[in-house]
Amino acid sequence: MRYTRLRLAISLAAILSSLSALPAHAQKIIKYAHFHPARMDQSMHASAVTFKEHVEKATSGSIKVEIYPAGQLGSAQQIMEGLRLGTVELGVVHEGGVSGVYRPFNIFGMPYMFQSHAHAYAVLDGPFGKELGEDLKKKTGIRLMAYADNGVRHFTNSKRVIRTPDDMKGLKIRVQPSPVFIELVKALGASPTAIDWGETPAALAQGTADGQENSVTTIMSASLYQHQKYATLDGHIYGFFGYLINDRFYKSLTNEERLAVDAGVEKAKVVHRDMTRSLDLSAKKVLSEKGMQVTELTPAEVDQFRNATQPPVRKYLETSVSKEWTDKILSAIEAAKK
Rank of each mutant, 00 (worst) to 15 (best):
A194Q: 08
V93Y: 03
S18I: 00
I79H: 07
V161M: 08
D262E: 03
T232L: 01
A202W: 14
T298N: 10
S178V: 11
A205T: 13
V313H: 10
A231M: 12
P311W: 10
G86S: 12
I195W: 00
E56S: 04
P312I: 06
K52M: 07
I67M: 00
I219Y: 15
E53Q: 09
L144S: 12
A24S: 13
E134Q: 13
K31I: 04
E134P: 14
L317C: 02
T50S: 01
V49R: 12
R174K: 13
F108G: 07
Q27I: 09
D280A: 07
S17I: 00
S18M: 04
A118D: 15
V270D: 08
R7E: 04
G141A: 01
F108R: 06
P165W: 03
S221F: 10
A300G: 12
S252P: 15
T208C: 06
V265W: 10
A38M: 08
K139H: 15
P179D: 00
D135Y: 02
Y32Q: 01
R143H: 15
K64L: 11
R5D: 14
K229Y: 06
S221P: 05
R5K: 13
N214T: 15
R7K: 05
A300M: 13
I182S: 09
M1A: 14
A190E: 02
D125L: 05
G96Y: 07
K64G: 09
T319V: 01
R174S: 11
L224K: 08
Q27L: 01
I329P: 04
Q115S: 15
K269P: 01
T295A: 11
L259I: 11
A205C: 12
K269S: 14
Q77L: 15
V88G: 08
Q42R: 14
T218C: 10
G71R: 03
M1H: 11
T4D: 13
E183W: 09
A308L: 06
I67A: 00
E95S: 03
H36S: 15
L124A: 08
V98Y: 03
P312C: 04
L12N: 10
F35W: 01
I162N: 11
